[in-house]
Design a protein around this nucleic acid. Structure first.
Lengths: 132, 132, 132, 132
DNA sequence: GTGGTCTAGACCACA
DNA sequence: GTGGTCTAGACCACG
């Protein structure tokens, strides 16, 4: 798995790592059972403090995306999806946020829909068409 | 303008205020020239320290959404939108993020599109159909 | 004397008035002995609180630009220039500030010199060439 | 980076800090990637409240001059200059202001040009002649 | 260690 | 009345 971070960004480094892993899973580049790089090797590779990698893995574990096994490493876990009613609420909240931000970027509904289509296509392409 | 915050949320209070104002503007509930609640009155209303409200208004001013005028108050300013090239990039980054998060909520592309349609409809309804 | 203010600007209104008067004097549109509009008439004309006009006139008097005479009004006074050595220091401080700001606008020394030439020409034109 | 403030000045302390940093960048004494003093250390050094330093750093970040990274510090960022059209307008407004102020200091156009030349030379000297 | 957020309360400047 | 600045001190998050 390729993980890249921008040390000059204002976004916390551990969050960048978390998002990179989430993105890899969403794109199908990593699936259940895959092993993440060890804390030390990843820290060396992207030149950050090992504690920062540990924090990222902790967050991923809390989110149910990975399981950390003592001495073995950190593995992508089976996806656990929230029940439908909760999912709907969270999804709507997420979209309200997104649409509000997009509005303040000056985007029209048409542009927003187009951007969503592009983003979805990017996932579908790499995944080979699951969850149609 | 109605502003509500949840002191128990992990999201900083001042950011919640910022988002509430952004949402009100996006929904057309507040337009250029409208006066926001005074720092002190809003602080009293939502039971937070006035400095927290000041911080929220400062962020809104930095984002170009409002102007603060000493002695007069804080007012919604004329919208200034970033140039098209920048907008496209930011919009795509925003959508990539959103789609990744939605995926981890277990949403299908169909559900994501439906959620977007609902969110857009909520804006269009209150705004009366601008920016088609 | 024509005075215009922008109530939507973040710059305090009284400062805008002060600058407008200073500009009129610098351009030669107002000279020693000229009477400024009365507090009430100016306040009505530009639709601001009379106290704001009073504050502007107070600042102008403190700066030695005008004299206020009880019951008569507010008049442009004879120019009083600081002694040469003080003037030099203040001028250099002003220019350091200006050049630093211009630098952060991304202007080159050439552009800065051109802008200065334009600004000087604007004064010379209206004044008919004093203080060469 | 050496930063000095005058607590007796009418100019707010946080603005003095902002200008000192802007000046250091303009003179080339600080360049992209350089770390500013930590909030606490600078506050101790110039004997002001840490929150005052925080406010200065916030303004610098808003102006795009620095990025603050939690846990790491505050760093000079890559310069981003406004587009040429905007720059020209802002530059002319800045110069009109400067020339008007200089006039009221009693300076002649010749003296003003000389002061500008000195101010520009001060930047060029330390920077080694960029942006000719 | 770094910055980020929040509270409490003071005093000043502007309309 | 409004916002603007500053102080003091707390606790949390990040590297």
């Amino acid at each position: 798995m390729l993980i890249r971070v921008d040390p000059r960004s204002a976004e916390p480094i551990f969050e960048q790592i978390v998002f990179q892993v989430k993105g890899a899973v969403a794109r199908g580049e990593a699936t259940a059972g895959d092993k993440l790089p060890s804390v030390r090797s990843l820290a060396r590779e992207i030149a950050v403090n090992p504690n920062t990698v540990v924090r990222a893995y902790e967050h991923l574990e809390r989110d149910g995306l990975v399981v950390r096994r003592q001495g073995a490493g950190c593995f992508i876990s089976e996806p656990v999806e929230p029940p439908a009613e909760v999912r709907g609420e969270q999804l709507d909240a997420l979209m309200e946020r997104t649409v509000t931000e997009a509005f303040h970027l000056g985007a029209s509904p048409r542009e927003i829909r187009a951007a969503l289509a592009r983003a979805l296509a990017a996932l579908e392409f790499t995944k080979g068409g699951k969850r149609k």
